[in-house]
Design a binder for these strands. Structure first.
Lengths: 209, 209
DNA sequence: GTGCATTTCTGCAATAGATGCAACTTTGCA
DNA sequence: TGCAAAGTTGCATCTATTGCAGAAATGCAC
């Protein structure tokens, strides 16, 4: 029960391979396009057997989200640590902003490629939406944790509202090529509207005892 | 330019075939499961050639949404007709309720099957989310139409909020086996929260001149 | 009714993603 | 050093999906 301190050589090698696959894949996607790149191509570029690809990613589509998934995992961990005395509403706002930061800042070498692919391929867009939906589920759980006894539907509505708003604003910004600062400004404005709605749910605004 | 009055024999036959394929597919999905049913099976049951399947549906996944897509098309048409003097906010509320009705009332012979499949297969869930996203885009356009000059981000945020809320509440209700009346009650409650947020956007609440 | 133009349907072949399986290698640890 | 667990690989297979070209059906004009 001590995996954090020493990830272990095996684990580190695995991470490196995962990274190598993702890098090779994204590079090829950028060069020749998504459908034009086969699993075999990626495997060759990453120096693994084609069969091994599926030991690291469940599907070709998932490799596009490798980096994003890592970042979201960090956000998730951070969301679990709530400063004492924070209201649920504040925790949600912080979560929204963290997710946004994870998605728009320091996009890594292939950030632009990922965004373009997701905007252009419906299948990839669907996978991205699915990830947002998972995020919504987690926000919903967090809201339940923070506000024991909150009305069932209120928790669902509030998290759906917040994540739905985040998702539509982000998509809009990307589709119109907003830079990071403009995205932040847009989300600030959007959050104001969302919070007006959340203000009407008393349970969200109570200071924890 | 007159397709409404007389759909034409050809067109009607096409609709019947489409229906036959969808029925056969859903029946098989219910009987043996989704992955266990191949395109060849569906074609055999619908008495068409396997190749013809793809003339009617772009993919196996889409056949699950055949009925839902038809209903959403109707809603879309209805949404275009706005009673004079209605505010944008009212139009949106009406749209939300219409979409919900389309999705929960009179689900047809295989409604339960469709819901179960979507809840259980991640790939199908992704496609469902994609449809919701399309709906959001349309709501966004409608908002722009109804409120010329509305702030760009406001329009995006409001539509994303509303559709995101609808989507999460619907999913929650289905996952917990709510009956239609309970779903309506839940969405009413959720809409109240959303509307509190929308109330803070002046452009939405102006009566059209 | 006949003939033509258009649309639809079908069969064939090929591609590529995904999965199960079993053998083979590498790694972690005693 | 040697064993057990974990990771890789090759192979076979299945199935969705697409392009293509010919066959068949349909709508319309004459």
């Amino acid at each position: 029960m001590h995996h954090v301190a020493t990830p272990g050589l095996r684990e580190r090698k695995k991470q490196r391979t995962r990274q190598a696959i993702a890098d090779a894949a994204l590079r090829l996607f950028a060069e020749r396009g998504y459908e034009e790149t086969t699993i075999a191509d990626i495997a060759r570029a990453a120096d693994i057997a084609p069969r091994t690809f599926f030991a690291y990613f469940p599907s070709k589509e998932d490799v596009v989200f490798a980096e994003i998934d890592d970042r979201l995992a960090e956000v998730r961990a951070g969301l679990a640590r709530r400063p004492p005395g924070e209201t649920a509403l504040e925790t949600i706002r912080r979560g929204m902003l963290d997710v946004m930061e994870a998605l728009v800042s320091a996009p890594g070498e292939y950030g632009a490629v990922q965004v373009r692919l997701v905007l252009e391929r419906p299948a990839l867009q669907a996978r991205a939406l699915q990830r947002m939906h998972e995020t919504q589920q987690e926000v919903e759980e967090r809201v339940r944790d923070l506000c024991p006894g909150i009305d069932e539907i209120d928790a669902v509505a509030v998290s759906g509202m917040a994540v739905g708003c985040l998702q539509s604003v982000l998509t809009h910004c990307r589709r119109h090529g907003f830079e990071a600062p403009a995205v932040r400004a847009a989300l600030d404005r959007a959050l104001e509207i969302v919070e007006r709605g959340m203000a009407s749910v008393p349970a969200l605004n109570e200071r924890p005892g």
